[in-house]
Design a protein around this nucleic acid. Structure first.
Length: 487
RNA sequence: GGUCUCGUGGCCGAGCGGCUAGGCACCGGUCUGCAAAACCGUAUACUCCGGUUCGAAUCCGGACGAGACCUCCA
């Protein structure tokens, strides 16, 4: 890798690509907002996790020692559309007739399955909100001590007005409090907040809450944003390198996290904030409330009404990485099919690569290609550009295969290792080999033998009947010089 | 309504001052009994109108269109 190439990443705080300078040389501390376990994550959620998984893999590839923390929200005080605090996990539990612990456990298991399905590397730590109630209480106490919180009727709120005397509020999302006030609905009469922009740090227990914890302010639940502050501090420190999450968390979640961190420890928790863009369906953000979502499992099983057939998880992952993490991505069957075809070419080329015979000279600029690939990674984790380089490699593999290009044994080994590393380790693309069905294999062997016999006798009627008949049930015959295969 | 982002060829999607992104589809070729598959190759583009510049998809201004956030959301 070139020493003069440095990693650039887009920092949401500045709105610019900046050189990445870690707090501690060679190390990266990264915190990413994970799932809320009140339902199964949908494909849009998965896109964000896939993108940050790719970023994590890039850091590892570049030789950084990474501490990757992704939280699991299993305690649920968030605000619903009516502006009232609602225990969303409790609501889901009632809906499914399960206790909250059961529901959290159930979706946690599902989420772990999805991680394996989509080949997400496990983070170093996956802390849960319920496992860190004490830490959250301690952060709230610190905010209290610093004068940025107040208690009202058993709940605790962050005092944005007091905070704004010492720190700017709204720097990440570019919002001005005066403007926000204009746009926000009136404080309603029962509201305990002193100021519209104040947000809950601790919420007094409601009669129907299923999860309740003790605190100095009475029984209740932690506020939505406080778990990230408490857990990121515990595992990465008061300030660390990167904080990531979906674009839609920018405001208010991440903005309030910054306020909490400044309010308790006097600094922004992260030096670089990274936001992954949304997955769109028909040009619109995939979301629960719009109902235009499907589950990561449905697309693999082919049970989503949006698609006429199943797609392998590795194909879906590949499709997602063909778009940059900061762009919205529209998922359609046509686009997915295009990716699937390209994916198959990549798989084929990998197979051919194993059979290439080295020459005594190399007719290709291997170093330039490697630099271009690394350059794509260094330029704000540009996965689509990296994939384009992979296809450039595919072109060379075929050229070598038909004798139009050569590589020495040494270069071929180097090339193969690098190509494989980019594909499997960096992009995280695995080729799933369909579990063979022995009986079908046997039948196909007979069919192909029959067809071959007919062909050798120039009995085209019979050979075409076999070929076309199989095509009707979705089996494609592929003739080549090496013989006939099917899929 | 406010803030912000974006409009690239048939589709998806990079690039973001001069150099073919890439994938899929299309078309031509090689191969084939004919096909398919595979491989090789050609073509097609930057929403519109102004401006800056020797030069703009790329910078600036405006129009139109789309989306996100402002309320739970990855």
């Amino acid at each position: 890798m070139n020493a003069d190439q440095s990693l650039l990443l887009y920092n949401s705080l500045s709105g610019k690509k900046e050189p990445f300078i870690p707090l501690h040389e060679g190390r990266v501390g990264m915190y990413v907002c994970g799932p809320t376990l009140y339902s199964e994550p949908h494909m849009g959620n998965m896109r964000t996790f896939i993108n940050f998984d790719f970023i994590y893999r890039c850091f590892l590839f570049l030789g950084y020692s990474v501490k990757y923390v992704r939280n699991i929200t299993d305690a649920g005080h968030i605000t619903n559309s009516a502006g009232l605090e609602v225990d969303s996990i409790g609501s889901a539990a009632r809906l499914e007739q399960l206790q909250s612990l059961e529901i959290v456990y159930k979706y946690n298991v599902k989420f772990q399955e999805l991680q394996r399905l989509y080949n997400l590397l496990p983070p170093n730590i996956e802390p849960t909100a319920t496992g860190h109630i004490q830490e959250q209480i301690e952060v709230i106490e610190q905010i209290f001590t610093n004068g940025f919180a107040y208690e009202a009727n058993g709940s605790v709120y962050f005092d944005v007005k007091a905070y704004m005397q010492r720190f700017p509020y709204g720097t990440l999302s570019g919002r001005k409090v005066e403007e926000l006030e204009h746009e926000t609905r009136e404080l309603n009469a029962q509201d305990e907040k002193r100021f519209f922009a104040d947000f809950a740090l601790w919420k007094k227990a409601q009669p129907d809450d299923m999860q309740i914890w003790r605190s100095p302010w009475g029984d209740g639940n932690p506020g939505w944003h406080i778990e990230c502050t408490a857990m990121s501090t515990k595992y990465l420190g008061k300030q660390f390198d990167i904080h990531g999450g979906g674009m839609d968390l920018k405001f208010p979640h991440h903005e309030d996290e910054i306020a909490q961190n400044c309010g308790s420890f006097g600094c922004n928790p992260a030096r670089y904030w990274m936001h992954a863009n949304m997955l769109n369906v028909n040009g619109q953000k995939m979301s629960k409330s719009l109902g235009n979502f499907f589950l990561p499992k449905e697309i693999v099983e082919g049970s989503s009404p949006l698609f006429s057939k199943p797609y392998a998880a590795s194909v879906v992952r590949f499709f997602m990485l063909q778009a940059h993490y900061r762009s919205t991505l529209d998922i359609t069957e046509e686009a997915l099919n295009a990716s699937e075809k390209g994916f198959e070419r990549l798989v084929e080329a990998t197979g051919i690569l194993q059979k290439i015979i080295p020459s005594d000279a190399t007719t290709w600029d291997l170093e330039a290609w490697k630099n271009a690939a690394v350059g794509a990674i260094l330029d704000d984790f540009n996965a689509p550009m990296l994939i384009a380089q992979l296809f450039e490699a595919v072109r060379i593999i075929h050229a070598m295969n038909i004798g139009n290009a050569q590589m020495t044994s040494e270069d071929l080994t180097d090339f193969t290792a690098f190509f494989t590393q980019l594909l499997h380790e960096v992009l995280g693309i695995e080729f799933v080999h369909q579990a063979g069905n022995e009986r079908l294999e046997g039948v196909m062997e007979v069919m192909l033998a029959l067809r071959q016999q007919a062909r050798s006798q120039q009995d085209w009627a019979t050979s075409d009947m076999i070929r076309d008949g199989l095509a009707k049930v979705g089996i494609q015959i592929k003739d080549s010089k090496e013989g006939t295969t099917w899929s």
